[in-house]
């Protein structure tokens, strides 16, 4: 099995996020592997351990992402590729990332590509499916179970709390939903061995891409934090009046009906 994992380095949304000049301030932010990508990594390791093969973990970003790639190697991936766009790309979006990854993957003969369902920062869930479209292969999103037998995969996917079972042939791209597995901790020997595993760094040039080939298709207009939760309102009076008032408020104040 020739397995690839698409990984994103993201800030830890459980830590306090500070927005400065319309951007998330990265100074004090803690960075982690996108948790959904951790499921993808774990699943890749389990598939490889069962069926053999090799896992390459790929990320698009800058050199700071080396730490997260090393962590993926420490967990058990075999090779890592950092596509460093820091010097080449000013504005990027999901199209940019997908285009770069697809270009990288197009001659790699991947049997299985795993990605997270969404990244916890942008949360668009676009990159995985876009890559599959560009490569012209099948894809299944939000998977919670994966069984591969020969050239065929049997997949359970989460559809808003219900389950859908899908049979699909390889090559295939899947995106991992919570519940797919329990990602392992990188072990100490794993961390020490990760140092010696190959980590290649590529730039747009190496993929024969120009900046305009990957130019963002979207524009970020504004970034803001969710509004602070305000104190609730307790309605008074008898039940019939309360219901009337509630309906009025939902219409006029909350404007949800």
């Amino acid at each position: 099995m020739n397995i690839f994992v698409l990984m994103k380095r993201t800030f830890d949304t459980e830590e306090k996020i500070v927005i400065q000049n319309g951007k998330v301030n990265e100074e004090g932010a803690e960075f982690i592997i996108n948790p959904y990508d951790e499921y993808a990594i774990e699943e890749a390791i389990q598939v490889r351990d069962k069926l053999g093969g090799e896992i390459t973990v790929v990320t698009v970003g800058n050199e700071d992402a080396e730490k997260e790639l090393r962590t993926a190697l420490a967990m058990g991936c075999d090779k890592a590729v950092l596509i460093n766009i820091e010097d080449d790309v000013e504005e990027s979006d999901q199209y940019t990332t997908a285009k770069i990854i697809a270009e990288y993957l197009k001659d790699k003969n991947a049997d299985l590509i795993l990605a997270g369902n969404v990244a916890i920062d942008g949360g668009s869930g676009q990159v995985g499916p876009r890559v599959a479209e560009m490569l012209g292969i099948s894809y299944v999103t939000t998977i919670t179970k994966l069984d591969i037998d020969g050239g065929k995969a049997t997949i359970v996917r989460d559809v808003e709390g219900d389950e859908e079972v899908i049979e699909v042939s390889l090559p295939l791209l899947v995106t991992a939903q919570q519940g797919l597995n329990e990602p392992r901790y990188p072990s100490l020997p794993g961390i020490m061995k990760a140092k010696k595993k190959p980590l290649d760094e590529l730039e747009l040039d190496d993929l024969d891409l120009e900046e305009e080939d990957v130019a963002a298709k979207t524009k970020t207009v504004e970034i803001f934090l969710p509004p602070k939760k305000e104190a609730g309102k307790i309605l008074q009076g008898d039940i019939a009046d309360q219901v009337k008032e509630l309906v009025t408020l939902l219409r006029t104040e909350a404007k949800v009906i």
Binding site: K67, R70, A74, A194
Partner: peptide, 15 residues
Amino acid sequence: TKEQQMIKDMVREFA
């Protein structure tokens, strides 16, 4: 070092 940082992250998460 990167290894030391990774060990710190891993042990913290584990603990």
